[in-house]
Design a protein around this nucleic acid. Structure first.
Lengths: 325, 325
DNA sequence: AATATGTTTGTAATCGATTACATTATCAGG
DNA sequence: CCTGATAATGTAATCGATTACAAACATATT
């Protein structure tokens, strides 16, 4: 029994002959070690939980891939759970960490309070990635949302747009930062910041379509729409067609996230690209570091971003080229 | 210690006063029961693993939601893992079942051999859903792929199309069934089945675009394209625009799965709708039944499907209406 | 007061793998 | 053939929660 364990753990002390014999018998009887017993004894599962708001999440799937790669490289397994942006459900999954079913947790989103997250993080390995919660004390990996939004808005203004609408989800921190960047650019360029051009969206296609409907029913419809996600931008595109407008012509569209959809829509979407793989990888590395070296102090990490220009801002691009600006 | 356990398990035998005291102390010291010890003793984790080929999977996310609901209702937790369609990786996750880290496994896809799956299923609770593996002996829940493809093809033919291309992934069983349905319809209507109209795709947007390129470079390009997934259909749409063609006009397009994208593309996609929620729910119910009642015999379950007609077959729709057919 | 009855609480074995420690096997050298 | 050293295997405690069973306690009955 002890020898079987030693064989399975590659303990060099067992004789080659017994090792072979053990392996053969294991094969014959179809024995499979019980991970519960092992983890209980070792006080480690070598398994990480990644929390996602939903499965079909284009952007986070890239982040998840990066995180997975980093985990596998260090011999950890990944499981995902889905919170559906529901705090109650999220708490149940967070319990997997408290109850030692996983060694660490990577949040890509959270409905928990800053206090809950801080408390959790002070006793257990946890990292936040992509989305972040204002005031929560736990290591965070993400982009500079304020700066990215600033750059997009400035680009639109310099490209000749004057009535720039923004669609954001005002309830999360990164959205608020994006709004701040947008305002900074407007202020800097002396463009009035008009409330009727701020529309709330929840990252979904449908909310983008609704926002679009509202915006293009205004007496002075926008000449550019900056959506806080590519999905919302897709909703805008779709609804503009339905309203008899030409997305990209009648208004420039800018998305966020650079998901695959952005490339295949007609017109293809200009968008903000975040390095998803890098973000996930870095977050996982921080987490594993915490697990294996619990007393280490950790800092937030900022990942670079870049603007990608496609058909949905082609008119602006032409303005730039023709020096019309 | 025994009493604490009894309190946590709501054993009515403990006195109300001690129960309160125990709960208070638990709160004070921040005690959280160790799930490993508990599961080890109870020989049950009340946790199910759902295997997905990738995270950002629009279609399977609906299936997963249905499965989740059914699981929560019966007090089971769900975790997901991602196989990236890699058999090696998949085996590692399947090990979670062998090692008792989960009570059951729900495959939505699999790269394992029929033999492996059959062996697994004969000793452990496992169900296959949506995708299926030919010859594998384990309960399966899905639609009648052959019939669905037959209906689509027939519809296209009756709508006046004569050069109908099909894009499918020939390596999986459901794709082969779809091809079979397609052939059946062609045969029935006396339309020649031309090999140059069979193009291979791997369910991705890109593969749809490639297939499209090939098809519309033929001397006799198709007048309809039936794609084995909405994503591939989206790739076709995109590439047709790029080739200066008009999807929906120059050729009817039919997708499969009815993911959200199908609704927002321009033109919106006609497609085959499978009841994702129902499929997931049913599969989970079968699985939980197996877990709680190991000796029960189970049968495959077929879920209904329906054809959804949108802009990408509008021309055909008009033919029907105008009685031109 | 003594016994019977019912209610709580405590004790110890158990789940399965790991591992420090004890024990046995192996073999070289005297 | 024995001693001593080393190599290999076995024994038993441990991780933390559960639960059959035993023990203690409280209350009612005669």
């Amino acid at each position: 029994m002890a020898t079987v364990s030693r064989v399975l753990n590659n303990d060099p002390v067992v004789a080659e002959s017994t090792r072979e014999h053990v392996l053969q018998v294991i094969n014959e009887v179809g024995y499979s070690p019980n991970a519960l017993g092992r983890s209980l004894r070792k006080n480690s599962t070598r398994r990480i939980l990644i929390l996602l708001p939903s499965i079909a999440h284009q952007f986070l799937s890239g982040v998840a891939r990066g995180a997975e790669q980093a985990a596998w490289r260090r011999g950890y397994q990944i499981v995902f759970s889905v919170t559906h942006s529901n705090a109650e459900l999220e708490r149940k999954y967070v319990n997997m960490l408290l109850q030692r079913s996983v060694d660490g947790i990577l949040f890509t989103t959270s409905q928990l309070t800053a206090q809950e997250l801080s408390g959790l993080s002070s006793h257990y390995p946890a990292v936040m990635c992509s989305e972040c919660v204002e005031g929560a004390k736990l290591p965070y990996v993400g982009i500079d949302n304020e700066q990215a939004a600033y750059e997009v808005t400035r680009y639109l203004i310099e490209g000749g747009c004057r009535r720039i609408a923004i669609i954001v989800h005002l309830e999360d921190y990164s959205s608020r930062l994006r709004l701040k960047g947008y305002k900074r650019a407007l202020l800097e360029k002396g463009i009035p910041d008009r409330m009727e051009y701020h529309v709330k969206g929840d990252y979904s296609i449908t909310s983008g379509a609704h926002a679009c409907q509202r915006l293009f029913s205004l007496p002075e419809p926008p000449d550019a729409v900056f959506a806080g996600s590519d999905l919302m931008a897709a909703g805008v595109v779709r609804r503009m067609y339905e309203m008899g407008l030409h997305p990209g012509e009648d208004a420039a569209i800018f998305g966020f996230d650079n998901i695959e959809l952005a490339r295949i829509l007609t017109p293809s979407l200009s968008t903000v690209s975040q390095s998803k793989l890098q973000m996930g990888r870095k977050a996982m590395e921080l987490l594993l570091e915490q697990i294996e070296n619990p007393q280490c102090e950790q800092e937030n990490v900022q990942i670079g971003h870049k603007l990608i220009f496609r058909e949905s801002t082609r008119r602006i691009e032409q303005n730039y080229k023709q020096g019309r600006v």
